[in-house]
Amino acid sequence: MYDSTRKFIATHYSRELATWLLGKPMELTEIKPSELSLEPIRADSLIFLTEQSNLAASTAILAGLVLNKDIIQRLLRNDIMKESVIYQEIEDQGRQKGETNLILRLLNRRIGEISPQLSQKIQSLSIEQLENLGEALLDFHSTEDLEQWFNHLSV
């Protein structure tokens, strides 16, 4: 079922699929079946090579809907995926979420439960700001210290 669906999408929506995968419109070279039998690898037909890392990451995401993790890792090289802007963005989001959770736990332990408003402010901080808050909270004794830190941040 998946093979016929993928074939249908690739055949009928190749331009749209390329645009979605690469994030920008792209003119595709049409490869005729006769060309493939004569020259299986034509460098001028492999348009996607310029976007190799983003394509690899997009492929991994799509493959994850059907294949298990081990198969995907065997098919796609890790180093190519790590160069992808998609991979890096996902990694940054994960890092920010992890740092935010750690800061919230440390603050709750250091100064007691914080208000939802302050929690919301913390969740909107950049990674660099979270790191700075992580250092500053070692000197906090109350919620007022955290509020003062935010006041200095907006100055």
Rank of each mutant, 00 (worst) to 15 (best):
L21Y: 04
L65C: 07
L75D: 08
Q129R: 10
A56K: 01
A57F: 03
S142Y: 08
L28A: 04
E128S: 13
R42F: 01
G94Q: 11
Q73I: 00
S37K: 15
T100C: 07
R105N: 13
Q123Y: 02
D145V: 14
F48E: 06
P40L: 08
L106N: 13
K97T: 09
F140T: 09
S115N: 09
S45A: 13
L55G: 00
E147N: 13
Q88G: 02
K69W: 00
I71S: 12
I61E: 05
G98A: 15
G94F: 09
R77I: 08
L130N: 05
E51M: 07
E91I: 06
V85W: 00
L55K: 00
H141W: 02
G112W: 10
L49D: 00
L62P: 04
S126M: 03
L36S: 01
L17F: 11
I114M: 09
E30C: 06
M26D: 01
S4W: 11
G112L: 14
A10K: 13
Y2T: 12
I61K: 08
D139G: 11
R42M: 07
E35M: 10
L21M: 15
L46N: 10
L125W: 02
L153Y: 08
N54Q: 03
I127P: 00
L106W: 00
V66Q: 07
R6Y: 09
L21T: 06
Y2L: 14
G94W: 08
M81G: 02
D92R: 15
P40E: 04
N68H: 10
I47F: 10
Q96V: 06
T100S: 12
E147S: 13
A57P: 05
E144Q: 15
E113A: 10
I41M: 07
I114F: 10
Q148N: 13
R95D: 03
I103H: 06
E30S: 09
Q148M: 08
K121N: 14
I127V: 13
Q129D: 15
Y13N: 08
Q120G: 11
E144C: 00
V155Y: 07
E16S: 08
Q123T: 11
P40G: 04
L133Y: 07
Q120T: 14
I90R: 11
N68C: 00
L28T: 00
S115P: 08
R109G: 14
R77E: 04
K32G: 01
W20L: 14
R74M: 07
G23H: 04
L67F: 11
S14E: 09
Q52T: 03
